[in-house]
Structures are given as C-alpha cells and as structure tokens.
C-alpha cells in the first residue's frame, strides 16, 4: 500500500514541477517514449508516483535518470503537462539529497574546473591552431576574471557544494 504524501507535491512545486497535478494518466507519454521502449522507465508511472508523493522510491530510482529529455511526451501530452520540467524538478530534489551518479558528478566538476562540461585536450588545442582559430577559445577559458565570475555564481547557487 502507498500512503499518499501531499507534502511532496509542495516540494515538487517549489522545485518548478507544480503542474504534475494536471496529469490524468492517459499514458500517451509512455507510448511515445524512446527510453521506455529500451528500459524499464515509464513516464506515466513516474508522474503517478510523483502525484502520490512516493519521494523515496523516486529519488532512489534509476528510471528518474533514464529520460533523455527529448520532449516527445511534452509535444504529445493532451493536458500540456510540462513533463520534462517535472523530471528536472524531481532530479533537483534527488541531487539535493545526495543522489548523484559518479559520471554526472564528473560532468559537474568539469563545469567547476573549466567553465565547460568537457575538459581541454592538447590534440584539439593543436588542431584549433592549425585551423587558424585561437588556441584557447574566447570563452571563460581565456579570461580569469570571467572564470572567477562564473565561479562566484556556482558558489552562490550551491553548485560547488554538490560536486564535493
């Protein structure tokens, strides 16, 4: 038996997923979901679990991270439920409670270190020069002050902390 937990609905709403309550469980989302065709992830089921407040089951599940955010479900939903926004809200809650895959933490650490989600590689730097491009792209990578500004944003919004 599942005991409905209305407090979780408030938590989801605060994270930007308030419209989960609009879902009337038709299943159009699951029917068109390319991930659901290849994994045990079921969009309709996740929306229902969110409505019922099954927080622990959701934030501990692999399925929460099996959405590729392709928006097929959002395009087809007859209730215009912003499903991807809801999934993002649920993932934010999961991460805030310490549920994060190592590889995702790696991507997050790249952002903190480089200001980009992938590291700088020597062979690509050489190719950039060969192509007549600046060896270092004209981004935060080439301006310490700009990178320091980004660092402040990452710290002020609690991001640096979740990568630790």
């Amino acid at each position: 038996m599942v005991t409905p937990n209305p407090d979780f609905a408030k938590e989801i709403a605060a994270a930007g997923g308030e419209e989960v309550k609009m879902c009337f469980q038709c299943g159009t989302c699951t029917a068109g979901c390319p991930s659901g065709r290849r994994t045990s992830y079921r969009v309709r089921k996740l929306m229902r679990m969110a409505q019922l407040g099954m927080k622990e089951e959701i934030i501990n599940s692999e399925e929460l991270w099996e959405c590729s955010t392709c928006y097929t479900c959002v395009e087809r939903c007859p209730r215009q439920v912003p499903i991807v926004d809801i999934i993002i809200a649920l993932r934010n809650i999961a991460v805030a409670e310490g549920h994060m895959y190592d590889n995702h933490k790696g991507t997050a650490k790249n952002l903190v270190k480089y200001g980009h989600t992938v590291p700088v590689k020597d062979d690509i730097t050489a190719l950039r020069e060969k192509l007549g491009l600046p060896a270092v792209p004209p981004t935060v990578l080439s301006n310490d002050k700009a990178k320091a500004d980004l660092d402040k944003i990452l710290a002020a919004t609690g991001f640096t902390k979740i990568t630790e």
Binding site: R91, V95, T117, T157
Partner: peptide
C-alpha cells in the same frame, strides 16, 4: 564572438542537478 561566455549550461545535466545554478549561469 560572445567573449567570456561559459557552458550554456547543459540543459539535461546541469539543469537537472540545480535549476538555480543553470538559470543564473
């Protein structure tokens, strides 16, 4: 060139970790 720009940041990962960070960056 949009000088000094950073990662957008990536919508499926960084936004999924912290929408607040994503939006501010």
């Amino acid at each position: 060139d949009l000088q000094d720009a950073s990662c957008c940041p990536a919508p499926g990962v960084i936004r999924a970790f912290s929408k607040k960070t994503w939006l501010a960056a």
